Simulated scan of single mutants.
Amino acid sequence: MNKNYKDLLAAAHAVIETVPTDKAMGMLKDDNIVFVDLRDRRELEREGRIPGAFHCPRGMLEFWIDPESPYHKDIFAQGKTYLFYCASAWRSALATQTAQDMGLTPVAHIAGGFSAWKLNGGPVEDVSAK
């Protein structure tokens, strides 16, 4: 193995912005910020999500960002700041680096992920099962 997950995370953290949880909470009402939840649907239904967050499963991120992809989502072409999160900030760190490498800017992720958000008393909205 040339690189393990810790190596990949360290490389991502060297080039991305990490927003502290309390600062992210203060950004929630900002219309120029798009909170992007990268967790899978089961996690959302079990744990809830940050109110108003856009759900983008991690496996679809590259396809939804790329305007040339048949799966492109217009939300990624709005010229806003994209704030990614997952459960523990591992997937979001890698996703932030990928989005940045693809040219989506500005992008950042939430330190500690959704777990830290809840632990620090951040608001959570329920997500009903499909």
Score class of each variant (00 low, 15 high):
residue 48 G to N: 08
residue 96 T to S: 09
residue 113 G to R: 02
residue 97 Q to G: 00
residue 80 K to Y: 10
residue 111 A to E: 07
residue 33 I to G: 05
residue 16 I to C: 00
residue 1 M to N: 15
residue 85 Y to R: 10
residue 53 A to T: 06
residue 104 L to A: 06
residue 120 N to Y: 14
residue 94 L to R: 08
residue 75 I to C: 10
residue 74 D to R: 13
residue 109 H to R: 08
residue 81 T to M: 11
residue 39 R to C: 07
residue 118 K to H: 11
residue 19 V to Y: 05
residue 40 D to P: 06
residue 82 Y to E: 03
residue 7 D to Q: 12
residue 73 K to E: 14
residue 38 L to S: 01
residue 115 S to W: 02
residue 60 M to G: 04
residue 14 A to F: 12
residue 5 Y to P: 10
residue 129 A to S: 15
residue 85 Y to F: 08
residue 49 R to L: 12
residue 98 T to M: 09
residue 58 R to L: 00
residue 71 Y to W: 15
residue 7 D to P: 05
residue 31 D to E: 12
residue 106 P to D: 05
residue 55 H to T: 04
residue 7 D to R: 09
residue 104 L to S: 03
residue 48 G to V: 01
residue 117 W to S: 04
residue 109 H to E: 09
residue 59 G to D: 07
residue 69 S to C: 06
residue 10 A to T: 12
residue 6 K to E: 15
residue 66 D to V: 06
residue 26 G to S: 07
residue 125 E to K: 10
residue 82 Y to K: 02
residue 42 R to T: 04
residue 62 E to W: 01
residue 5 Y to R: 14
residue 50 I to S: 03
residue 19 V to N: 02
residue 16 I to G: 06
residue 101 D to W: 11
residue 11 A to L: 03
residue 111 A to L: 05
residue 31 D to R: 04
residue 45 E to C: 08
residue 46 R to F: 13
residue 110 I to G: 00
residue 9 L to C: 11
residue 6 K to P: 10
residue 70 P to K: 13
residue 21 T to K: 07
residue 39 R to E: 05
residue 69 S to L: 05
residue 22 D to H: 11
residue 124 V to S: 12
residue 64 W to M: 07
residue 16 I to A: 08
residue 82 Y to G: 02
residue 77 A to S: 15
residue 117 W to I: 07
residue 10 A to Q: 15
residue 116 A to E: 04
residue 127 V to G: 11
residue 106 P to N: 08
residue 10 A to S: 14
residue 113 G to W: 04
residue 18 T to I: 08
residue 10 A to F: 13
residue 61 L to K: 00
residue 37 D to G: 02
residue 99 A to Q: 04
residue 4 N to E: 14
residue 102 M to P: 07
residue 130 K to W: 15
residue 104 L to K: 00
residue 80 K to R: 12
residue 86 C to N: 01
residue 126 D to G: 15
residue 75 I to G: 06
residue 102 M to L: 09
residue 73 K to H: 14
residue 36 V to Y: 03
residue 39 R to Q: 12
residue 54 F to Q: 04
residue 14 A to E: 13
residue 14 A to W: 07
residue 58 R to N: 05
residue 19 V to W: 01
residue 115 S to H: 11
residue 24 A to F: 06
residue 31 D to T: 03
residue 19 V to L: 05
residue 62 E to L: 00
residue 84 F to P: 07
residue 104 L to G: 01
residue 47 E to A: 11
residue 60 M to Y: 11
residue 71 Y to R: 10
residue 90 W to P: 03
residue 24 A to H: 08
residue 63 F to K: 05
residue 50 I to V: 03
residue 27 M to I: 09
residue 55 H to N: 02
residue 79 G to R: 06
residue 67 P to E: 09
residue 86 C to V: 05
residue 112 G to T: 03
residue 20 P to W: 10
residue 105 T to Q: 13
residue 6 K to C: 14
residue 22 D to N: 01
residue 66 D to F: 01
residue 45 E to P: 00
residue 31 D to L: 09
residue 33 I to F: 09
residue 93 A to Y: 08
residue 4 N to D: 15
residue 76 F to R: 03
